[in-house]
């Protein structure tokens, strides 16, 4: 079992740690120098990035960067580069028996409850959340963020740094250009260019409150 350090001390790090501890020994958490406190995180010491290589040398520890999709995944991308420059090997996590196509990239995570169909290619620094469905022969390029509940059709290509929101639907064999944002619940059945943004309208609040709604909708129950 690898010994690792994890960059990030927020909710994403806490979520990723849940899975990482199944495969790795986490020894410490790392954050930017300005955010260091004496408080441990998940019971482990928190180390400033400038001093981590001294305390946890890269020839003894690997690393994982667990931060969110800030700045369209470029923050996470830059932290991966920073730790790589310090000499760390970046580990990945995916459930046993995941039928991915070849080796998963470094610093990528496929959470246990994601559905990955056969022959999917996963690049570097990709996060796939539980509940996502990634169709066969799809390609998730570097630094993507694939949210829970989304459905990606077979043979689709998701460009670098693209964000796919909760419950979004991406059609079969389409290509989404890099740096795109697919909002929650959006439907994308055609190829879209890099930098595209797809969002859907929010469901408006119903005019009746819940008590009034139940009063009239209880009439429907008497149909059966």
């Amino acid at each position: 079992m690898h010994n690792i350090i994890v960059f990030g001390t927020g909710k994403i790090s806490e979520s990723c740690s849940y899975y990482l501890t199944k495969k790795y020994n986490i020894f410490a958490y790392v954050c930017d120098n300005d955010f260091v406190t004496d408080e441990p995180f998940l019971g482990k010491p928190v180390i400033a990035i400038d001093s981590v290589a001294k305390s946890y040398p890269p020839n003894e520890y690997a690393a994982f960067v667990a931060v969110g999709y800030q700045e369209l995944n470029t923050l996470r991308e830059s932290k991966v580069e920073q730790l790589t420059t310090l000499g760390y090997q970046l580990v990945s996590y995916y459930p046993q028996h995941t039928p991915i196509n070849g080796p998963i990239g470094h610093n990528s995570m496929i959470m246990d409850d994601a559905v990955i169909q056969p022959c999917v290619t996963v690049g570097n620094n990709v996060l796939v959340w539980g509940g996502a469905m990634v169709g066969h022969h799809s390609v998730l390029q570097d630094h993507c963020w694939i949210s829970g509940g989304c459905a990606i059709g077979g043979g689709a290509t998701i460009g670098e740094r693209t964000f796919v929101g909760i419950n979004a639907t991406l059609g079969n064999a389409i290509t989404v250009g890099r740096d795109a944002i697919i909002g929650s619940g959006a439907i994308c059945n055609k190829c879209i260019a890099e930098g595209s943004v797809l969002i859907t309208a929010e469901t408006p609040t119903y005019r009746l409150n819940s008590h009034q709604f139940i009063r009239f909708s209880s009439e429907f129950n008497s149909r059966n």
Binding site: L208, N209, Q212, F213, E219
Partner: peptide, 9 residues
């Protein structure tokens, strides 16, 4: 009103 809407069954 909302109550009238709810009563329109």
């Amino acid at each position: 009103s909302s109550d009238e809407i709810a009563d329109m069954t």
